[in-house]
Design a protein around this nucleic acid. Sequence first.
DNA 1: AAGATCCGCAACCGCTCCGAC
DNA 2: GGTCGGAGCGGTTGCGGATCT
Length: 274
Amino acid sequence: MEIEDGVVCNQSEEEILGLRRGPWTVEEDVTLMNYIAKHGEGRWNSLARSAGLRRTGKSCRLRWLNYLRPDVRRGNITLEEQLLILELHSRWGNRWSKIAQHLPGRTDNEIKNYWRTRVQKHAKQLKCDVNSKQFKDTMRHLWIPRLVERIQAATTTTAIPNNMNMSSDQVLVPPPENSSTAASSDSFGTQISPISSMTDYYNDPVNNHCNQDYDLVNQIHYVPDSLTSPYGYFHGGLDFQAMEQTPQWFGSGNTSDNLWNVEDIWFLQQQLNM
DNA sequence: AAGATCCGCAACCGCTCCGAC
DNA sequence: GGTCGGAGCGGTTGCGGATCT
């Protein structure tokens, strides 16, 4: 409720202007996608008006960037992505858009949500602040190495069929025009996995790189999507059901939750109490 | 079976930055 | 230099589905 010049107003400015809020309808999505396909993106306020959408430019921009854009990835955050997020967050803090730039197809909103719902949950379990040195040390010395272990185990034991097809009910809004961006599955067996070098680095018992500032950001530029994550399979067309049966991608449940077990939490609490 | 609670995520909000005028 | 509008960012909210009691 807003008060203007002593007069109580129950309507927001947007409502007065006849602007809609809340969840987007299919019709609005289609309108926005068609308009952008014809005229391109940008100038969001005028775009919203020209397209006949009763939405703010901000709302259109957000809907496009976080949901409708053809290259938006949907689905669980992979182990590799979790690793990157942890590493990049330890470096840059809550610079979500900057972090998102290093995770192709992921939006800042998605990463932010992941951090808040998963990572902060673990901090809460450990009864420490997510920004505390204790929690950061915990991530660096236990969580990240554990992730690396799991990635390493996954890459050495699994082959994923490359004739996967995406079933329609697993994508909320099928990207209409990006089939041309599909990664070739031919590259799967022919490229060297940077993940293995990454895991070697972390697991190197001689040099103990866990304690050093490992330049993951620079390395990640050389990561072929089709090899290190399901990303390539998304773009090549995939079968989520098949992937769900492949534990290293989606795990047997929540991938991040699985990183912790009772012993870990007990151990950490002992450390934190020291 | 039904209500309560939890959780994930889409969407919104407020603020800052930046370029055009 | 000041103002304005567009764009982008990080924080927050609220809805809906899942899970628990």
